[in-house]
């Protein structure tokens, strides 16, 4: 038995399990360092007390070590409640519009030839190649009072409505309408891509089977295509809804300052008011509103998946 035939126990372990453990461990490490740890810090800040020091929070003093003031204000101060409602409403509108616009686009992508499909998919993600801010500024230009776009819409409105309703321009900027419009434009690819991937997997023979059994094409869509694309609808919906609800840049640039969205509130609490515990409380509340339904969904999804594998 030469020494070269025996490996060090640690090397032995590494060759047996090391690589697989390392590869499985990486995403967990990523989540731990870049998501869980920062989240624990935010939760810890949310129960701290605001102080005029730097950083502007501390524990204890006149207040209890775990200070739930921030959470109490969330429930009582209607600024926060209104901001939450505005955010959820704008995000829901954006999500529904993205679905209505994105579904036919995704379905169309599955019905064109392979060559066309690649070109069209490229076009769907092409906007990401320009700066997001630049695109929002472009929309601000389009919606502004003196733009050709606003002028066109104004003429259309004046032509279509009775004399007394005439306007000199359409007030699009600084409204929830503008926020939803720009969010739909920005987040549409996030709806199209998961929808496309779920629709693309459907067996075209199922459509033919339904047709063969007496169903007209629109009925086939309702009976066969739509129910099977529910996972894609939910995935796309979450991918649009979650970032839209926490969106900061779009409402700041094109939104109504009198009706702030929750991202703006968090940003203001952190930066202007320097109330880090309050900002953290809002952030934790937002996360819970987003994460709890997602977790419930993925729990049932996992159940359905294991059922399917049988």
């Amino acid at each position: 038995m030469g020494p070269q035939t025996r490996r060090h126990p640690l090397a032995e372990w590494f060759h047996r399990r090391g690589w697989s453990d390392l590869i499985i461990g990486l995403p967990y490490l990523w989540l731990l360092v870049l998501f869980l740890l920062p989240f624990v810090i935010v939760v810890a800040m949310s129960v701290a007390t605001r102080t005029p020091t730097a950083p502007p929070f501390g524990y204890g003093g006149d207040n209890p070590v775990i200070n739930l003031n921030g959470y109490a204000r969330l429930l009582h101060d209607d600024l926060y409640i209104r901001a939450f409602l505005t955010s959820l409403l704008n995000a829901a509108n954006a999500m529904i519009l993205c679905l209505l616009i994105g579904y036919p686009m995704a379905l169309g992508l599955t019905r064109v030839s392979k060559n066309w499909r690649n070109v069209l998919l490229m076009l769907v993600i092409l906007p990401f190649w320009t700066s997001f801010l630049l695109r929002v500024y472009a929309w601000m230009g389009l919606m502004g009072k003196n733009s050709w776009f606003n002028g066109l819409l104004t003429s259309l409105w004046n032509w279509a409505t009775p004399e007394g309703w005439a306007v000199t321009s359409i007030p699009m900027m600084h409204s929830n309408f503008a926020v939803v419009l720009v969010m739909v434009y920005t987040y549409l690819p996030f709806m199209i891509l998961p929808l496309y991937s779920s629709l693309e997997r459907l067996d075209p023979a199922l459509d033919e089977a339904a047709m063969d059994l007496g169903t007209r094409p629109f009925g086939v869509f309702l009976d066969v295509t739509l129910p099977q694309s529910v996972p894609g609808i939910i995935a796309g919906g979450l991918l649009v809804f979650i970032p839209a609800a926490g969106e900061l840049v779009i409402p700041t640039l094109v939104g109504d300052a009198a009706q702030p969205m929750i991202g703006r509130v968090i940003s203001d609490e952190f930066a202007s008011a320097r109330d880090w515990p309050m900002a953290s409380s809002v952030a934790v509340a937002l996360l819970l509103i987003m994460v709890v339904p997602t977790m419930i969904y993925s729990h049932y999804q996992a159940k359905a998946d294991t059922g399917e594998r049988k």
Partner: peptide, 28 residues
């Protein structure tokens, strides 16, 4: 196809995965 008194058994069977056996059979 939806007006023909002709029905087909597909090679892949093309059963609707989201419907039970009874719903599949009763679909037409």
């Amino acid at each position: 196809p939806w007006e023909r008194p002709v029905h087909m058994m597909f090679q892949s069977y093309a059963l609707f995965p989201h419907m039970s056996v009874a719903k599949n059979i009763g679909y037409g």
